[in-house]
Design a protein around this nucleic acid. Sequence first.
DNA 1: GCATTAACCACAG
DNA 2: CTGTGGTTAATGC
Length: 227
Amino acid sequence: MTNFQACITCPFKSTAAKTLNEDELYALGDNCAQASFKKGNTIFKQGIFSSNIVYLKEGIVQLHIDGPTSEQIIKISKGPTYLGIPTTLDEKYNRYSATALTEVYACFINIDTFKTFVQENGQFAYEIILDLCKNEVNLFNKCVNRVQKHIRGRVAEAILFFAHEIYNADSFAIPLTRSEFGNFVASTRETVSRILTELHTEKIIALHGKHIDILDNKRLALISRSG
DNA sequence: GCATTAACCACAG
DNA sequence: CTGTGGTTAATGC
């Protein structure tokens, strides 16, 4: 099975890839490979040599880094999105890892092909830069919030993040264990567990294991804001 | 001092 | 793996 058809007709094309002309799309198809991953699989790993840009077509992924004391979840991303541009373009070895939180379909794009597009197609390069910019600003905010908000605010923010950015719904199942959730909001599983039951008894959310229904968006947003 | 916050520990289901 | 209770260190009033 050849790839180039897949790229031309791919329904998950990135905004950047939409700027590519037919020849470039064929080139992309010839220089990338698709792979699928099951929940828990490693997509790429910190410290391992990397020569591909990863494009996440479908699925949810956690990016994590081996910190001074333990593994730290940096970010949770949902496809379609690029995954490893910062860790591939400028670095010989991956500076962080990506692990599937759901079933994942991803394309591994040859780095030289990707670089050629950036160098020769200004529109493509612009869309990539735009993406990286949004990302950086977003992470700046996350960084400040993680340091300055109280744990209740961070948990509330995380719930709203899943609702708005990942599931686009007020009812969903968190793709993390309590322990991972704790890690994600820079806290512990015990504390997160307590806050969640608190929010439940306060009728701000309905909680059934990993399932969360947001009952009171206003109060949740208030808690997220006021920290 | 006294209260609050949140981590750490331990144990049960 | 998760929830809960007790303990404790740090911080604020």
